[in-house]
Design a protein around this nucleic acid. Structure first.
Length: 548
RNA sequence: GUGCCCGUAGCUCAAUCGGAUAGAGCACCAGCCUUCUAAGCUGGGGGUUGUGGGUUCGAUUCCCGCCGGGCACGCCA
């Protein structure tokens, strides 16, 4: 495995360092993949790192380290370069190791064990049940689900959770909006609530309610019906995206279970609260927030902040010593508050919740462009691009791949016209096409692909073949780093590159050649490429079609 | 005004805990299908990484100032 080769090279350098500079800890040795092929397969900058403290010339130091390197079956040569880099070049056998490993591990290739079977809770989407999911939610769903898959591949025990805000004022607004539309449809003269939701879907819910012989005067019934309808709607949106949650946590349950009361009690006992203007405040500024927060309003009700803290306490109490929240940047203000609330609780409950708990992935908004103009995502105004609309237009694979292929903290411009009119230019097809091409070649060969696992790879000598093999070897590192950084976009970029190298190879060389050993070796290589494409696409929730 | 985030090719975006000559795609230009899928390939032009300093062998990356954009600054969620 590539990881084995990397640790092997590290080991060689460690031995060399022990001879050249015995006092130096080996932990300083770091290997990286150079951007340029001319700089070898791996590069080490240890000589430059040590030059100052050893008071030696970095190039001389590097030369000494190279001279002291033990012999190795994988290493072709080591050379001094630039200001003091040690560039390591692998022999073909070392590069082809990856192909063997991919075929041996199959769908499990790329997995790591950083999670060590520990539980982690990932909360995402958590949309209010007051409308269908829009593209911002779509981005969060694609991001969150891919992140969960990545964490699972690193051996974390992942729970996907959706926090359901079913207890707030927005639900009242929803009920009043639907009630008003229902009365309107009955021919009554009513004034629509000023802050009500304007969307067409409100009218539809009202019509459905009336069709079911519902009484517009019964606000409780209207509310129950509306929430249920929108929950079904959101479930449908998520299903269309292919995202499934393990658990829905209801905000209302925090009240009925007494957890909100308990949290307020504990926070009061912590001595971090005070009363002012008839309200109860928490000194969140003691924990890095920029102003203190009201917990209990002067009318006796709680602010949303309290159930939010209570909810996160349950995460910890449920055994999730690791938790990640995926949120839009419009809610980034809650980060300091929630963490502050948890830290204040620590002082009385001795729960020992760590300072940075929970982790956050903050993503920026999705700007939607249509006909060269920005479409505002406003529920109230009613102009509304839903996740479902987009899936219907460009397909689930494209939507998911596209939404996950950018860093979370960059703003996302989704041009609907571009996505509609130029679906062929979407990168997802490029990657899927590589997969389909490989399937086609294997089908024409016709024999059992299982046998390729033991094929000799010695015939693979072209630079393109070795580069492709080496690219396969990077996959486990890409996944490990992407999981660690909560950055699924790295997987999308990797797949784009792998597919690109495959397409070039496919165009330049023929796989089904007369030379039998060469044919089998090339088949083994492309079979391994197909496996990695499959594994990568699966992580992103994108299909790997056999035909296109 | 204060806090957080972002600023990289015409456009959309990358850049491995500070690494070597900052990379892809789209668009544009010129080529490649009697041969395994042309949703593909090959080649080309495109940059003072917003800006000014600092840190050091070395900065897109770290620190400070400024400019521009987004978001948040409720006893709303």
């Amino acid at each position: 495995m590539s990881a084995e080769i990397k640790s092997h090279l590290t080991d060689l350098l460690t031995q060399s360092l022990a001879l050249v500079a015995p006092q130096t800890p080996a932990s300083i040795i770091a290997l990286e993949r150079p951007k340029q092929a001319a700089h070898g397969d791996w590069a080490c900058n240890v000589a430059m790192q040590l030059a100052k403290q050893l008071k030696k010339n970095p190039r001389e130091l590097a030369q000494a380290l190279i001279a002291a390197l033990p012999a190795s079956p994988w290493l072709e040569r080591a050379e001094l370069a630039g200001p003091g880099f040690i560039n390591l070049r692998l022999n073909p056998a070392a590069k082809l190791e990856a192909v063997r490993n991919v075929l041996a591990a199959g769908a499990g290739y790329g997995r790591g064990n950083a999670g060590k079977r520990r539980p982690i809770l990932v909360e995402f989407v958590s949309a209010n049940p007051t409308g269908p999911l829009h593209l911002g939610h779509g981005r969060q769903a694609a991001l969150g689900d891919a992140l969960c898959a990545l964490l699972e591949a690193q051996d974390w025990k992942v729970t996907r959770e959706f926090y359901y805000n079913d207890a707030g004022v927005q639900i009242d607004t929803l009920a009043l909006s639907v009630q008003s539309r229902a009365r309107e449809q009955r021919g009554e003269a009513v004034s629509f609530p000023e802050t009500g939701y304007q969307g067409e879907y409100i009218r539809e819910i009202a019509a459905d309610y009336l069709a079911g012989k519902g009484d517009p005067g019964d606000l409780t019934a209207v509310r129950r019906f509306s929430v249920a309808a929108l929950r079904r709607e959101q479930d449908g949106d998520l299903a269309a995206l292919g995202v499934k949650f393990d658990n829905y946590y209801l905000e209302s349950s925090l009240y009925t279970d007494g957890k909100v009361e308990a949290t307020v009690g504990a926070l009061t006992a912590s001595g971090k609260t005070y009363e002012q203007d008839g309200a109860l405040w928490l000194r969140t500024t003691e924990y890095g927030d920029d102003k203190d927060r009201v917990m209990k309003k002067s009318d006796g009700s709680y602010t949303y902040f309290v159930p939010d803290v209570a909810y996160h306490v349950t995460k910890w109490q449920r055994g999730f010593t690791h938790a990640v929240n995926i949120q839009g940047s419009d809610h980034h203000g809650t980060v300091a508050r929630v963490r502050a609330g948890l830290q204040a609780l620590n002082t009385v409950t001795a729960a020992g919740i760590p300072l940075g708990y929970p982790d956050y992935v903050i993503h920026k908004m999705v700007t939607v462009m249509k006909a060269g103009e920005e479409v505002k995502l406003s529920k109230r105004a009613g102009s509304y691009v839903t996740a479902r609309d987009l899936i219907d237009e460009v397909g689930r694979d494209a939507v998911r791949f596209f939404l996950v292929s950018r860093k979370a903290d960059t703003e996302f411009v989704f041009d609907i016209d571009l996505a509609k009119s130029q679906t062929e230019d979407n990168p997802v097809y490029y990657v899927q096409y590589a997969h389909a091409r490989i399937c086609s070649v294997l089908a024409q060969w016709g024999a059992n692909a299982q046998t390729l696992g033991s094929a000799s790879l010695a015939a693979l000598t072209l630079p393109r073949e070795l580069a492709l093999a080496q690219r396969l070897g990077e996959f486990p590192e890409i996944l490990a780093e992407a999981a660690l950084a909560f950055a699924p976009h790295a997987v999308a970029f990797y797949l784009r590159e792998l597919a690109g190298e495959f397409h070039s190879y496919y165009n330049a060389e023929r796989v089904l050649v007369a030379d039998e050993p060469l044919k089998l070796a090339r088949l083994a290589l492309i079979l391994a490429v197909r496996q990695v494409l499959q594994n990568g696409l699966a992580l992103l929730g994108v299909s790997a079609p056999e035909k296109m």
